[in-house]
Design a protein around this nucleic acid. Structure first.
Length: 870
RNA sequence: GGGCGCGUAGCUCAGCGGGAGAGCACUCGGUUUACACCCGAGCGGUCGCAGGUUCGACCCCUGCCGCGCCCACCA
């Protein structure tokens, strides 16, 4: 029959070499235009905006993880007939980039100040070219099905126009304002940071209690930041605190400085904490600032932008804040004013999360803010109304928690590179905001600060599509379909996009927010550079291939949950790829093809595997629709390995050796099943499936193949049940052989009694092949027997093991079986003996227990008899 | 202090009302014509603890113990 088969289009090498399979494939896909999205297409749109990775060196494992998930979604949708678009982008203006460039400069013995603005910007662009290019190359290597014709950067011209447009609108609507506020200051970056860029960490500090004033007016206050006492303008006590009632309104002298400060009463003070009295430094502590505002206190700033003490008129001026902390304490001690010191004192301190993790300094400063109230409310309502779905749902409270109580967003940064704030100041204090294309009046000077990088990133879902122009892309792809990102970025980025999307477009930026967890190391620990447990995905791609890396990552991706991954996972995924490769080689070498018609009268094995394939397809389909990557991947792994390879292929071997009709049917089933399986696996492991699928089908590319749909034929439950019985029988005989130490290679003469009655008449050859039995010839004398109870009935197996059997091993085996059967009988009896159970439990459950009881009883009888013979 | 979640086989994790599962690790056997990156068989768990609901609980409820993450202005 071989001559009627379609020609094979490719010879598969005997060995799967990921590097060779991947070589040039991605470029071919791009060239074929598979990834290019056409806004004029009639197909339904599916659009994903991708988080802009910082240009911080390389695409780390977290990016590889996220990109894999996004690409799985995109590739599946493309196969389903959607016009898909996923936009790549880069973020070049963040604090992190500045910090890195700054660090590189420091290594060269220079600094941003020495270099000057122009040279610094040039230097940063060079950084972008180098590292941005590297990251994009890695995205290609990962197989990201990106539309490269729309490659986007946050700093390109279109992005600039979008930023100017929205800034102007917000400004004109009164949603952007400039004010002197308490901000998070990074002395290292010499810039303000937004609240979310500050990470609070417990540190071992000190709590110093010191005495202000003398004699009857003395009052003791405690602080973890002694140096700030230089900027104190009051001491506060609780209004109801009788201990201090007589002091409220009086003045005492501030030690070291000599200034007179007032004792005030404020509700904020907790009378139960410490002495119940608090020093107030309005310009260097958020709470103190509020107290200062309530009481109209002076607010002297006593630190410069680099964190050095300044303008106190004391000898501490010029000292670094940490040095001053020690020196001020010593000076106070010399005056006998230190009452108590607690060290270490564990308390929470804010650190710059995107820079060098320096402690941030609360500082009073003039900055630009977005009035977030109406924007944040809309962002919350969008999720409340179900307009935008947060997945998994458990993370919704976090969203509301944040959005419903959001502080105004500080958007100005004292960096040199980024989108410049489009506000100009006139000679007489005029303030003008310019929109795109607008020129400021002559003689005006522009604000020096640049915008927070999340300001432009927040426009991503529509700026990348051409906004503010009404482009076809925008028309077709907005709102985007799903945002895939880590839960850690919810507040940074997702919140900004929601606010801006709803404000600028009047419509949600995406239908679904699918949140994934973080990749952890193989023992479940958080990856961190300082711990040194980070992994480079490139190394794993080198060693195991991209398909293996993607498969391993998808396999641990449970929604909103962190997944541990180690080299073992990737090796296991590589092994899976090898398995897939080899089984396809087997199929091809036996003439399997999906072009062959499925048999009109399939064998039990054929019907079973096609039925299982259909169930697995439905399952995988539903799981991916629900962003359950790990479960979908796991289902495919087990179906492929434990069912298709381990059972179907083994059953197919005797079928291929049978009559022509059976053999051809088997070739068709092998071909159809493998074809569908490869297509189901393609979104997860694109390269290997492409190589195997084109070899199997001769098709153009699996990238544009159809996602498998459920066939109309019903699942043959009876055939499936017979296969399950067959598996049981085979496993039992194998177990017996192993325990009797019959070498796997030796064929054993055997007689199977009851096979026909059990409904397995057609499977005699299959059983013989799978357990290496041969037909009992003349003079057959069984030396061992074995009973296996199947759903279809009992089967008695007689074997000639050519020698005495190992009675001890057989007794041990039967003993274990007997114990299991007795336990089963006991449990069943207990249940059935309970009238309430029989009464209240559903009939099918009770019937099930009855059947199990009967089976157990029969087992006990059989095993006991067998043991007696032994 | 508030929110979310987790404690299941040596390790990492699925399962979440009716017969305890997977991967890796481990033990034993294997040159069967796709595959040793493999095949076959096996060992291994009072499902954190204590109550409750139920005919029935790893699964639902309550409390406790241990752990993680996020948020919050504790000097």
């Amino acid at each position: 029959m071989t001559d009627t088969l379609p020609p094979r289009t490719a010879e598969l090498p005997a060995q799967w070499t990921p590097g060779e399979v991947e070589a040039g494939l991605y470029e071919r896909w791009v060239e074929a235009g598979y990834f290019t999205a056409d806004p004029a297409s009639e197909k339904p749109p599916f659009c994903i905006v991708i988080p802009p990775p910082n240009v911080t060196g390389s695409l780390h494992i977290g990016h590889a993880f996220e990109h894999t998930l996004i690409d799985v979604l995109c590739r599946r949708r493309r196969m389903q007939g959607y016009e898909t678009l996923w936009l790549p982008g880069m973020d070049h203006a963040s604090i992190a980039v500045h910090a890195l460039v700054e660090r590189a400069l420091a290594a060269e013995g220079t600094s941003r100040r020495e270099l000057g603005r122009e040279a610094f910007i040039e230097r940063t662009w060079a950084w972008k070219e180098e590292h941005g290019g590297a990251i994009l190359a890695q995205m290609r290597r990962l197989g990201d099905s990106v539309d490269w014709t729309r490659e986007r950067f946050t700093m390109d011209e279109r992005s600039n126009r979008a930023v100017l447009t929205i800034f102007k609108r917000l400004f004109d609507d009164g949603l952007i304002y400039r004010a002197e506020r308490m901000v998070n200051w990074s002395p290292e970056m010499r810039s303000v940071l937004s609240d979310v860029e500050v990470e609070h960490k417990e540190v071992d500090g000190e709590l110093v209690s010191m005495r202000y004033g003398d004699g009857e007016n003395a009052i003791v206050v405690a602080t973890t930041r002694v140096e700030t006492m230089l900027g104190d303008t009051a001491v506060a006590v609780h209004p109801g605190d009788e201990r201090y009632a007589h002091l409220v309104g009086t003045e005492i002298e501030l030690p070291l400085v000599g200034r007179m400060i007032t004792i005030i009463a404020d509700e904020h003070v907790d009378p139960a904490f410490g002495t119940g009295a608090v020093k107030v430094t309005p310009a260097h502590d958020p709470n103190d600032f509020e107290i200062g505002r309530r009481h109209g206190l002076p607010m002297p700033t006593i630190m410069d932008e680099t964190g050095r003490i300044a303008n106190t008129g004391t000898g501490f001026d010029g000292m670094d804040r940490f040095e001053a902390r020690v020196k001020v304490r010593e000076a106070l001690a010399a005056q006998g004013r230190i009452v108590a010191e607690k060290r270490p004192y564990v308390h929470s301190v804010g650190h710059a999360s995107r820079g060098r993790f320096e402690p941030i300094e609360p500082r009073l400063s003039l900055q630009w803010f977005v009035k977030v109230g109406p924007l944040a409310k809309a962002a919350g309502d969008a999720v409340r109304s179900g307009d935008v779905v947060v997945h998994p749902k458990e993370l919704e409270p976090r969203w509301f928690d944040w959005v419903d109580d959001m502080h105004d967003w500080c958007i100005s940064r004292q960096l040199w590179w980024g989108h410049r704030i489009p506000v100009w100041y006139g000679p007489d204090g005029e303030v003008v905001c310019t929109g795109p294309g607008e020129e400021p009046p002559a003689g005006y000077t522009q604000d020096e600060d640049v915008l927070d990088t999340w300001f432009s990133s927040g426009l991503w879902p529509f700026s990348t599509l051409g906004w503010p122009d009404a482009t076809p892309d925008l028309e077709k792809f907005y709102p985007t379909s799903v945002l895939v990102t880590g839960y850690d970025i919810l507040f940074f980025w997702v919140a900004r996009m929601m606010m801006f999307g709803l404000y600028a477009m009047g419509e949600r930026p995406f239908d679904t927010v699918a949140l994934h967890g973080m990749v952890r190391d193989q023992s479940g620990k958080k990856m961190s550079k300082t711990v040194g447990n980070t992994v480079d995905p490139n190394v794993w791609m080198d060693d195991y291939g991209t398909d293996a890396l993607r498969f391993a990552l998808a396999r641990v991706a449970n929604p909103g949950t962190d997944g541990p991954i180690g080299e073992d996972n990737v090796a296991s995924a590589r092994n899976f790829g090898t398995k897939l490769w080899n089984v396809t080689r087997f199929a091809l070498s036996h003439g399997a093809s999906p072009a062959l018609p499925l048999p009109a009268r399939p064998t039990d094995a054929d019907a079973w595997i096609l039925g299982r394939l259909r169930e697995v397809r439905d399952q995988v389909d539903a799981l991916l629709e629900d962003y359950q990557f790990a479960k979908a991947t796991e289902a495919l792994y087990h179906f492929t390995w434990d069912e298709f390879c381990a059972w179907y292929v083994e059953l197919a071997k005797p079928q291929l050796a049978a009559d022509d009709a059976t053999a051809d049917g088997t070739r068709a089933v092998l071909g159809h099943a493998l074809d569908a399986l490869l297509r189901l696996l393609h979104p997860i492991s694109p390269f290997i499936t492409e190589a195997l699928w084109t070899a199997l089908t001769g098709g153009e590319s699996i990238v544009v193949a159809e996602w498998p749909v459920a066939p109309g034929t019903p699942v043959d439950a009876a055939a499936a049940a017979r296969v399950v019985d067959l598996q049981r029988l085979v496993t039992e005989v194998r177990r017996f052989r192993t325990e009797q130490r019959v070498p796997d290679s030796r064929r054993v003469a055997a007689r199977l009694v009851g096979l026909d009655e059990a409904g397995l008449s057609g499977h005699r050859a299959a059983v013989a092949a799978l357990v290496r039995l041969e037909a009992a010839g003349a003079g057959f004398t069984p030396t061992a027997t074995l009973d296996v109870v199947l759903r279809g009935g009992p089967v008695h197996v007689e074997l000639d093991t050519s020698g005495a059997i190992d009675v001890a091993a057989e007794q041990a085996r039967l003993g274990r079986d007997l114990a299991a059967a007795r336990k089963e009988l006991d449990q069943s009896d207990k249940k059935l003996g309970n009238p309430k159970f029989v009464d209240k439990a559903p009939a099918e459950i009770v019937d099930g227990i009855r059947t199990r009881r009967a089976a157990a009883a029969a087992d006990i009888e059989r095993i006991t008899a067998r043991l007696a013979v032994l």
